[in-house]
Structure formats: C-alpha cells, structure tokens
C-alpha cells in the first residue's frame, strides 16, 4: 500500500528509529563502547571521533585493538578495511531500494556514511511501504539521526560510565549481535535471506578456523553465492512443477 507523504514527513518518520527498541539497544552498545574507551585510555574526543567517522562498531573495536597493539598506520588501515567489507554489499543492496531516477549520486555518496546495521535493516524494511520519491529522505532521517544521536550518547556517557563494571560492558556488547540476528531475521522479505543467514552463521566460524584474516569476506561471498544458487534452483523447480 502506498501512502502520500512529503519528504520532511518521511525524514522524521525515519528519525523515529532512534527511539525504537533496536535504536535504544544500539545506544546501549554505544554506552558500552564509551566505557570500553575509558577502560583502554582513550579521550572523550578520540572516542567520539572514532564512532562518528567509522560508524560501524566492530570496526571501531578493531581500530582500538590495532592502535594499542602499536600497529603502523598502513597495517591498521588494512585491518579496519578488512573488517568493513560488508558495508559494500549492504550499501549496494540499499541504493536500488531508496533511489529514484532524479537522485544525484553525490547525495547517495554522502548519505552512504550512515549505512550501518540498525538504519540499514530499518530502511530496507520500511521504505517498501513508501513512495519512491521520499525514500532517500526516509533513509537520511533514519541514518543521519541515529548517527547524530548516538555519537552524542558516546560524548555524554563517556565520563558517567567510567566506573561501569566489566560485566555490564560485556552484557551491553552481547546485545549487539543478538539484536543484529533478530532484526535481520525479521526484516527478511523472502526465504533467500533465511538461507543466506543460516549459511553465513555456519560458514563464519568455519572460515575463522581455516583463514581468519579474510573469514568474514569468504563467508559472505561463498554464503551469498550458495544461497542465491539454492534459491534460484528451488524457484526454477517450482516454476516447472507447479
């Protein structure tokens, strides 16, 4: 069903993601990140800068790990880049969903900074119900607001959570993969996503044992190809034997 809404209405509708359960869960993980930053000895400015510039929690943790391992800039660049490859197919899958023929590429390049799991899942899920000309506005609201809000959350919670016990930080970090798992599962529009998820969950740990440097990338490409193949074969079979 298509509804008629203006671009600014779509923007604020997207912004609501900040106060959904997934949004608040992310804020919890960001408070955990602020606590972790205090723990390892980063300044408030550094913590905010990292989160704002990277905007992908696993990559932020890898950057910190590399910094304190005393890694040189090129080595850190490589480690962080390897951890962030998933952002490419995520962005590539989102762009055809939200753009319209008039959307300028420079706008998409700027907005792509806000591609991270929470806003991505939310937008992939919700923009389907919106007319095409307001979808970019919706994503700008969802991605931009959740970015701005949570970058601020890190800055504000930095001092306050300095005494957070290790177990509390651990519990907050635990919520991240748990809600990733459930939001991704719920947002699936057809069963090809279920196949891709199950295969990815299995292949990830398998490749982590065999080839840990590029395990995520391998799991993604092999898992994605395998699940596409399975999906196409099942659909073809359905077509031939209705």
């Amino acid at each position: 069903m298509q509804i008629n809404i203006s671009k600014s209405q779509a923007f604020w509708q997207g912004a609501k993601v900040v106060f959904t359960l997934q949004g608040l869960m992310l804020s919890g993980a960001m408070i955990g990140f602020a606590g972790f930053a205090v723990e390892v000895g980063l300044s408030r400015f550094e913590a905010v800068l990292m989160a704002g510039m990277i905007w992908a929690l696993p990559s932020q943790l890898i950057l910190i790990g590399s910094i304190f391992a005393g890694a040189a800039l090129p080595a850190t660049f490589l480690a962080v880049a390897l951890s962030a490859i998933r952002l490419m197919p995520m962005t590539a899958a989102l762009v055809p969903e939200i753009k319209n023929p008039k959307t300028p590429t420079w706008l998409l390049l700027i907005l792509s900074h806000f591609v991270a799991i929470t806003a991505w899942v939310y937008s992939m899920d919700k923009t389907r119900e919106l007319p095409r000309d307001v979808r970019v506005s919706f994503f700008a609201g969802a991605g931009g607001c959740i970015w701005a809000f949570n970058t601020a959350v890190i800055g504000i919670s930095y001092g306050i959570v300095s005494d957070l016990p290790l177990m509390a930080i651990g519990a907050l970090f635990f919520l991240t993969p748990v809600y990733f798992l459930m939001t991704l599962w719920r947002s699936a529009r057809d069963y090809s996503i279920y196949i891709a998820m199950v295969i990815g969950l299995i292949l990830g740990p398998v490749f982590a044992q065999i080839w840990p440097e590029i395990d995520i990338l391998l799991a993604g490409v092999v898992g994605g190809s395998l699940s596409t193949l399975i999906y196409v074969l099942i659909e073809r079979n359905k077509g031939e034997n209705p």
């Binding site: 955990g32 972790f36 696993p58 943790l61 890898i62 790990g65 490859i85 998933r86 197919p89 995520m90 590539a92 899958a93 799991i117 290790l166 177990m167 930080i169 651990g170 970090f173 635990f174 991240t176 993969p177 990733f180 798992l181 991704l184 090809s192 996503i193 196949i195 891709a196 998820m197 199950v198 295969i199 990815g200 969950l201 292949l203 990830g204 740990p205 490749f207 982590a208 395990d215 995520i216 990338l217 799991a219 993604g220 490409v221 092999v222 898992g223 994605g224 190809s225 699940s227 596409t228 999906y231 196409v232």
Partner: peptide
Amino acid sequence: LWVRATATSLVAAVIAKLILQPTGALSE
C-alpha cells in the same frame, strides 16, 4: 538478489564472530 544474499551472509558471519570470538569485555 546475489548482492543482498552476500550482504546478509556477511552480516551473519559478523554476528557469529561477535558471539564466538568477541574482543573485550564479552569474552569474560
């Protein structure tokens, strides 16, 4: 379809890694 499936498998592998091989406090 392939790009979407690949993105999903990548994120699923990240989920598995965050649970099985976490950095920092969760490994407690």
